[in-house]
Simulated assay, not measured.
Amino acid sequence: MKALVYTGPNRVEVQDIPVPEGRSGQAKVRMRYCGVCGTDIGIFAGKHPRAKAPLVLGHEFVGTIEEVRDGSGKFAPGDRVVAYPLISCGECQPCRTGHPHVCKTLKLIGIDRDGGMAGYAWIDENVLFKVPDTLSDEIAALVEPLAVIVRSLHQARFNLLDTTVVTGAGPIGVLTAIVLKHSGASRIVISDVDQARLDLCRSFGFETVNVAKDNLVEHIDATTDGEGVDIVFECSGVESAAAEMTRLARVGGTICMTGIHKAPRSVDLRDINFKEQILIGSRVYTKREFEMSVAYAETLAEDLAKVVTQTVPLSGAATVFDMIADPAVNAVKVLVDCEA
């Protein structure tokens, strides 16, 4: 079968590799689409501490079951499925106390073991979820990043009519804003340096600020009489956003770290004290939140479809990271067509 294989820093190859062997309790899934994630970009750059070459990339995938080996009867050949890709140890303190999604040795399909940018994969039956018949394969491939957002809103304790700022208009930032729109936010401001991405955001009706040209803090101050917003979702992972985020949130407001920063940042902790702000982290999602996202994707399908800006065939995916890095392409969310 064909697979997109990470072979070393800044190197991926489309290779013909054997179809893996399955074991009892697993399903053989013929892959349809797999999303390219920021984590995949980090792996490609050689910056992920756990990903080791050779590795089949991809943890945001949808496919069709072809075989179930000693299954429970819950799944059958022909079922379309998505997979909860987290692998927890089951023994550490978070796992023992009901928080396996933040396992001390958390692993993921597509990072710590071969993933879904391939013709086939054998996946444990107990992490599979059926895709509703009314949900297209392309939208189903967005269930995993959508679950990240569902978790983030839960962590932020979002309430109806909250005012919000989303820093960063990458896939996670845009999906955050879409979920906020459907959840009843009264104001959604999203910032970025990429005007093409901000133009996409404007098509959803979001208020945009190009921080390459305008000052986000000044904009929020001017439009809130200096009070700030209820919740800031930091989705960019960049140093400048970390420096500004406490100035964007109101007294008693919340800052939710949705994006993961790859290095220590300077944060004005005085604001956390003096404004009694809540600073909270968000990491991946629970299994229940992943399940919720399968159903929620149907509600958001029309908007989610606009986030997919490019689809590339698996046979030509060796250049997908170069394409994403090219500013002329204006890529937001890219899917790999595993059947092409």
Rank of each mutant, 00 (worst) to 15 (best):
I231F: 12
M257Q: 14
A141R: 05
I87K: 13
A340S: 15
V127M: 13
A76S: 15
A331R: 08
K262E: 07
V62D: 06
A331D: 09
L55W: 09
E234K: 04
P132M: 12
A196E: 13
E289L: 10
K47E: 14
I149S: 10
E67G: 01
V267L: 15
A301L: 03
D230C: 02
R288D: 14
I123D: 06
G228W: 08
V229N: 10
V131Y: 04
F321V: 14
I149E: 10
E276V: 09
Y296H: 09
R23M: 03
H99L: 15
M257T: 04
V217M: 02
P145I: 07
A241H: 03
R283D: 03
A147M: 06
N10C: 04
I123M: 11
V336K: 11
E276K: 11
D214N: 15
W122K: 04
V102F: 09
I109K: 02
E291A: 15
D221L: 04
A27F: 00
R30L: 10
P132T: 10
G116A: 05
K213V: 10
E218D: 15
C103D: 03
H101D: 06
C89L: 06
G73P: 01
N273E: 08
A141Q: 05
I324C: 10
T39M: 03
V320Q: 06
L146G: 05
P54Y: 00
W122H: 07
V267D: 03
G71H: 05
C201R: 08
G38Q: 07
K74T: 11
V131H: 04
G173V: 06
P94T: 08
C201E: 04
I149F: 11
Q277N: 12
A249M: 08
V209M: 08
G46Q: 07
V102Y: 05
G115D: 01
A263N: 13
A76P: 00
G63N: 09
K107W: 02
L161G: 02
D124S: 13
F206I: 13
V143G: 12
E234L: 05
N10Y: 14
D225T: 05
D271L: 09
M31C: 02
T319R: 15
D162M: 08
D271G: 09
A325I: 06
K52T: 09
E227V: 14
T134S: 15
L146T: 11
S152T: 15
T224L: 04
A325G: 12
V308S: 10
T309C: 07
M257V: 11
E60P: 02
I220E: 00
I172R: 03
E276R: 12
S236F: 05
V308H: 11
D162C: 06
R283A: 12
E91G: 01
R113H: 00
A295E: 14
A331E: 09
V102M: 10
E339P: 00
S136T: 13
